[in-house]
Design a protein around this nucleic acid. Sequence first.
RNA 1: GCCGGAGUGGCGGAACGGUAGACGCAGAAGACUUAAAAUCUUCCGCCGAAAGGCGUGUGGGUUCGAAUCCCACCUCCGGCACCA
Length: 867
Amino acid sequence: MSRSTDATAETATEPASGRRERRYDPATIEPRWQRIWEEREVFRTPQDLTELRRKPKYYVLDMFPYPSGSGLHVGHAEGYTATDVVARFKRMTGFHVLHPFGWDAFGLPAERAAVREGIHPAVITQRNVDNFRRQTKRLGFSYDWRREINTSSPDYYRWTQWIFLRLFERDLAYLAEVPVNWCPALGTVLANEEVKDGVYVETGDPVERRKMRQWMLRITAYAERLLQDLELVDWPESVKEMQRNWIGRSEGAEIDFEIDGHDGLSFTVFTTRPDTLFGATYCVLAPEHPLVERITTPDRREAVRAYVAAAEQKSDMARTDLAKEKTGVATGACARHPVTGARLPIWIADYVLMSYGTGAIMAVPGQDQRDWDFAKAYGLPIVRTVQPPADFDGEAYLGDGPAINSDFLDGLSIAEAKAKMIAWLEAHGKGRAKVQYKLRDWLFSRQRYWGEPFPIVHLEDGTVVALPEEELPVELPPVDEFRPTDDGRPPLARAGDDWLIVELPDGRRGVRETNTMPQWAGSCWYYLRYVDAHNEERPWDPELEAYWLPVDLYVGGVEHAVLHLLYARFWHKVLYDCGLVASKEPFQRLFNQGMILATSYQDASGKYYRRDELEERDGKLYPPGGGEPVTVQLEKMAKSKLNGVDPMWVIERYGADALRLYELFMGPLEQTKPWQMEGLEGLYRFLCRVWRLVVDDKSGEPSPRLIDQPEGCEPELCRTLHRTIKKVKEDTEALRFNTAISQMMVFVNQATASATLPRSIVLTFLRVLAPYAPHIAEELHRRLGGEGLLACARWPDHDEALCAEETITVVVQVNGKLRDRLEVPPGTGKEELERLALASETARRFIGGKTPKRVIVVPDRLVNVVV
RNA sequence: GCCGGAGUGGCGGAACGGUAGACGCAGAAGACUUAAAAUCUUCCGCCGAAAGGCGUGUGGGUUCGAAUCCCACCUCCGGCACCA
């Protein structure tokens, strides 16, 4: 027995309930047990290392939510239920479990609500957190609430700032002039993921590109390790692949091109195909390339300036969208081919992006379709340098083949030619092998109020310095409004001089940074703070980190597949390099829960209706005013689609246990699946059947079928019990909750049909049920006179011998078709099975007197007679 | 276009290469009830009176045996998308 079981054993003697409900009534029993768990602090994880080291650890983590005003939805509840079942199960099987919860509480919605309502975002956030917490608690999760964190609390963001200083010290944080998504209506920059089709996704306000001086984090310095270390983690292959694509590693070469007539002036291109250098017939610079202005010849100046100006106006989206047709203009300048010395015209075109590689390319139309299209459009020459196969009828040829028209490379395959060309370039100082990544540095500042202030001061002489650690936290100052200033400076610029003006300990004076950090900052390290949530000296105790990390199971939506998970991995690796964490990767196993869909009803004009507004006539649904029947479809739950399901509404009707079971019974956790209210009723009925195993619902007294005999007096039920213990254990470990629940249903169906119910069998079953439906399990356990709390109980052992079948059905097939079944004891020998099969009346009819060619016998499975 | 993932009853879904459809929902019949609800029992892939035949998106293949492995294709979902 675990220590905590002893500590709570006395609860068994206390009356849990004033009166005894007859019928299953989750509304009374659930709050009662939640109160008991909370009062006895049964889910409090020890903090003392000596005690912790007595048991193995298991860290099971949910992606913490942004506490939005609309509250918890059934999608949250699915993931949280899954981790809760795992947490409760792991506790029962002898682990110290870390299962914490908290709030990703900085963010734009609270700030926008603050502007709208004229209330401080902290107040709005607190209101939402309180609501979210109350709802979350009502589901009966076994979180250690003492470790609750809130990223917007100064106790927390003090350490977010502290980690930023570590990044700054290591030159991983820097200021740079970069193009950003500026939304004039909101007066702030937006993250890339908040902008689609040139507008802010929430409000539809247009977004423009603007250059601003911004904080950047040098995540590109970690590109290779972020890529390589994906090998170390147990994540869905799809998520790893998305991260690999995002990092976008490609091998190739940089090649230097001198500009004809500009002594010493050159530019560098990146190419993955240095083998095709002899096929380069022109070069292209991105319109923003710094050399454009200098090299453009006077006769081309006007056209080039017009093109550059037009490109600047276009959003990224417009640039890629309109780019079916390639456009560009010649600069009039020419580059020198690094091998042949030939003059190659230099063009500018917006199909070349300044943000990737060097912002310049050598164009090889023979082997690149984009270059082919451009060359065709502007009448530029095309030279093939890889021999296409005889039957090739395409344009640019991307396949392998012998090099042609390529001087010293002729006849070589692509791979050989690449190696040889790189060697030549390096030998002649005209280029070098190069690994390029798509990943870009992370734009880390926002012109917002509701985020972490930077612990940074701009001195009068223009230098940028970090605040000393003792000055942390830099708290958010009070401001009169949460909008940017009229001249476009961030909201923090509204703070008074007593906040803005800083005198450093050495007497130097400066102005505070007025940008704030993006919402991702707090979520980059919250999983570390949980191990030591109240440490005021340090962000966490390294020994606690070494004990608990990495997270053993991390569950959340796939929408964070790239950004959050990449950013957090990046910070973790920096912390590793600083010697602050002992683990290379933060999240050992990642699991994405699937989206939950719901039926939505939409009329021809696109208007959505709630189901209860519609009238049903001859199998069709009509809108309230009549007219055409509505379209019925399955869509992601959304407020705008009026198809959301409120978990609190479900709990009022069916209870948290039924909701928990339904969330997991719907189907595999990772799968997208539709919500069906009827299915939920099935789970409620299941719990009613469980209730009636113990309670006679006419009298409220214990069921008369309960007996105090040993479990062996109902041998069949006893076998099913042991099979259930085993299967639920295996399925829970593998996160196959739906099949675990179905096995519990099999048990309950059989128990319902049983004439007598040995009390010990029911008590054992309740321990199996407890991680899934903890409230009803505790209540019935108590009513049966069970000791202690199930929340602290040990998982029952199953008896392997009892799990085996007494007789096994062995199938008889003739030519692979099922013809008969044999009931035999397990382990019946091959010869015996073959004899029985060939003796089978039905099988003989199909064998038809022929001599079997072959007989395949799989013991305990089947006999296949081939004739 | 490229990269992932998935297609099984009326529905959600089960099935170490070995009895396809566990479990649940919906449906049908019956019991209990004055009646209804609740509960309980039985039935429930398709064709067929039965014997049996046909069935896991489509077409091939491997195998004694394929929902499961291989090839090609179709459809749906997700991600990326001029990344040189």
